[in-house]
Design a protein around this nucleic acid. Structure first.
Lengths: 150, 150
DNA sequence: CTTATTCCTACCTCGGTGGTAGGATTTGTC
DNA sequence: GACAAATCCTACCACCGAGGTAGGAATAAG
């Protein structure tokens, strides 16, 4: 599994806030209630989003969280990357410049690199707004005959 | 991580056999030696490939393993699917017909379905032969301007 | 009958996932 | 000023899959 509950819940939180904010702050309790998820666990995930600058928060009564930008300005890749740490499908393609010692002679490496690229390409093209609007054509790719058969 | 060492080593084993078989059987010890991997661990992985019908085996002296088909007739998806069990990037898209209970109202599900499709599409188009031949254009996709910018 | 090999079963360690618990701090409202 | 509603912070924990290891039984070639 490439994306754990952390990343999935992060995305759920972002869409929930986008939908229910209306300019104001949305409380953690409300999100947990609506999404039927553990408030305590969501809290730890939201903290990541907040520290990462994807959300803005207000403490105290009537406080909560709101998006730092317009939904269309978030791509899914950055949300998942922040919460998951990496989106690489395999260990041997780790980003931080550290390469597998066998990389030079590894014949399967191009495959993993290609897979990584395909994933990153897909996720970076889709925005939070696409999810809110239920843009199925963009997400499921039915519109692209070429890519379907390729 | 979507693909563990099990799947990666499985692919490494398949390419090693394809390269070194020459019609005959390749022994586990030789593969482990060439690839610098634990023979005991490889053994458990090769057992899956063998039971799954991707390899043929011969016991006893001068025994070993060989491919059941031509390299060009294996696509990477089936090799990884057999060893990993699933290639789904998230838990909530599990294949066996069992769906998440929130599926009907989940706005992020199409995203995961689309991601799953993109991955499956990529891996099913590449063959073992492509890896052996180092077909970088196909694996890294540089030839497709359209898909690059899409 | 010896040797090289696959086949089978059982076991082990470690780190990450998926949480839970409790309290400290901040802010709006009366 | 008190209270309530909210975020923020630190610590803890159980479970399970990843990534192996170990030892021996069965089989086939020479």
């Amino acid at each position: 599994m490439m994306v754990s509950t952390k990343g999935r819940y992060a995305l759920t939180v972002m869409t929930d806030i986008a939908r229910n904010s209306d300019g104001g702050y949305v409380s953690l309790a409300d999100i947990a209630e609506r999404q039927k998820l553990s408030m305590k666990y969501l809290e730890s995930i939201i903290a990541i989003l907040n520290k990462g600058g994807l959300l803005e928060s207000l403490r105290g009564k009537n406080g909560g969280y709101k998006l730092a930008r317009d939904p269309g300005d978030y791509n899914i890749s950055e949300i998942l990357l922040l919460t998951e740490g990496t989106l690489a499908p395999v260990n041997c393609i780790m980003q931080d410049g550290v390469q597998c010692e066998k990389a030079a002679t590894c014949s399967t490496l191009p495959l993993w690199a290609g897979l990584d690229k395909v994933i990153e390409n897909y996720l970076s093209k889709i925005t939070l707004e696409d999810i809110i609007n239920g843009n199925r054509r963009k997400m499921l790719g039915d519109y692209c005959d070429h890519c379907d058969t390729l």
